[in-house]
């Protein structure tokens, strides 16, 4: 299975984290878009081209969970993999209940990340296929 053409969006306020994740995804064949804030991501719009969203929970301004709410309300069924610097169980539960694919505690192993993203991509693909059949 190839990842060509699959686009992953990474939103994190930390530039180093953004660059590292971008490189990992590229080495695996994904295309990557990075954003420093939820606001920047929302401004770009056109969520259909994206296969998966890797989202930092705590950010200045709008948080990751806020963004998840915005997307859900907007009817955008985009699979989200949360990454967080805090082992915060209530937050994890809340994210998963809202439909998140996974919540990863920083720092995380590349295989863990890829596994979660692949599940997300698969989910996205399934959703799209379902949508096309209809």
């Amino acid at each position: 299975m190839t990842n060509d053409g699959v686009i992953v969006a990474v939103i994190d306020d930390d530039p180093s984290v953004r660059r590292g994740l971008s490189r990992l995804f590229r080495s695996k064949g994904y295309r990557v878009e990075t954003y420093a804030s939820a606001r920047g991501f929302l401004e770009r719009g056109d969520y259909a081209r994206l296969a998966c969203l890797v989202l930092d929970v705590r950010m200045p301004g709008q948080t990751g969970l806020d963004l998840q709410d915005v997307l859900t309300v907007g009817g955008h069924d985009l699979p989200i993999v949360f990454i967080t610097g805090h082992g915060d169980v209530p937050l994890e539960v809340r994210a998963l209940q809202a439909g998140a694919v996974d919540v990863l505690a920083k720092p995380f192993d590349d295989e863990t990340l890829f596994s979660a993203v692949e599940r997300a991509v698969a989910k996205n693909r399934a959703v799209r296929t379902l949508g096309e059949r209809r």
């Binding site: 930390d14 180093s16 984290v17 660059r19 590292g20 994740l21 490189r23 990992l24 590229r26 080495s27 990454i83 610097g85 920083k106 720092p107 995380f108 192993d109 590349d110 990340l113």
Partner: peptide, 11 residues
């Protein structure tokens, strides 16, 4: 920084 380091190193 640890997250950045790990991601970058594995990349």
């Amino acid at each position: 920084p640890l997250t950045g380091i790990l991601a970058n190193a594995q990349a």
